[in-house]
């Protein structure tokens, strides 16, 4: 098993897995406490439009999907800030339009596109140095944002009406949370794929929330669980020659059910 670490692509996979785990631990916590899980699903699927643009015009995939997702996210933020009751409908519409746009562009591109499958199911073993650089920059940006604005983000997430009354620019922070979510989702798609990304953004957080009194500790513990699940998932994937994305998610899910079962038996916390 350890000899695998001598391969550069395995080293890259491990570094990427750890970086993405920390990112999804932090941003997933924000997504869960802001009840934006469906919204993140919408962003993930609409990012497919960015993939279509990347394949059709031969653009770098990560950059293309990032720009497209941020563009869609800003539209969602503008349309939903005042009228949150429209959120579900708008997410449904952008979800469908983004995917349709992407599929049509892929259809119009001649030849077979290997990128497509890796986008759907993840390709952590194909992570490049450029991808790692992108992940590192995003992580630094997220950490700096938290360093300077943690209290504002906490206030907006907990009670945005009250935060607004206390003079916090809630529209700015709502949009900022959404943009950070969009970029993190695009990165996480690289690891586990579009179809499984929601699990990576929610399962570690769901577990961590049971043990944490504060959002900050939830972010740290979620990141820690996420790193554990990613490494164990990669080990399972390597040992049994399975796809890495689904392996990571299955390890996460089994851990979650095990913890729920243990807690259920102990009767300390009600399951679900």
């Amino acid at each position: 098993m350890l000899e695998a670490l001598s391969y550069v692509f395995v080293q890259n996979a491990l570094i990427a897995g750890i970086l993405v785990s920390i990112i999804t631990g932090i941003i997933g916590s924000l997504i869960v406490v802001n009840k934006m899980v469906f919204l993140s699903g919408g962003i993930a699927h609409s990012a497919y439009g960015g993939l279509g643009l990347s394949i059709y015009f031969g653009l770098p995939m990560l950059l293309s999907t990032s720009f497209f997702s941020v563009f869609v996210t800003i539209i969602i933020a503008m349309l939903t800030y005042q009228k949150r009751e429209n959120l579900d409908t708008i997410i449904g519409v952008t979800w469908a339009i983004g995917m349709s746009f992407g599929i049509l562009l892929v259809d119009l591109t001649p030849g077979y596109n290997s990128d497509l499958m890796s986008y759907l199911f993840g390709s952590i073993l194909a992570v490049t140095s450029d991808d790692i650089l992108f992940m590192t920059i995003l992580l630094i940006f997220i950490l700096l944002t938290l360093l300077f604005f943690y209290r504002d983000i906490l206030a907006v997430s907990y009670d945005s009406e009250y935060a607004n009354l206390r003079g916090i620019k809630t529209r700015f922070f709502y949009t900022l949370i959404l943009i950070l979510s969009a970029l993190s989702i695009v990165i996480a798609i690289k690891i586990v794929g579009l179809i499984l990304v929601i699990a990576l953004l929610t399962i570690p957080i769901y577990i961590a929330q049971k043990f944490c009194n504060t959002l900050f500790i939830t972010m740290i513990l979620s990141g820690f669980f996420s790193i554990l699940f990613t490494i164990f998932g990669l080990v399972v994937s390597y040992k049994y020659d399975l796809s890495s994305g689904p392996s990571i998610i299955l390890v996460s899910s089994l851990s979650m059910f095990a913890i729920i079962f243990i807690q259920f038996v102990k009767r300390k916390v009600k399951p679900f």
Partner: peptide, 11 residues
């Protein structure tokens, strides 16, 4: 959170 205009925007 009840503080008016959070002065210290640092962690």
């Amino acid at each position: 959170m009840g503080q008016n205009n959070i002065r210290k925007r640092f962690f």
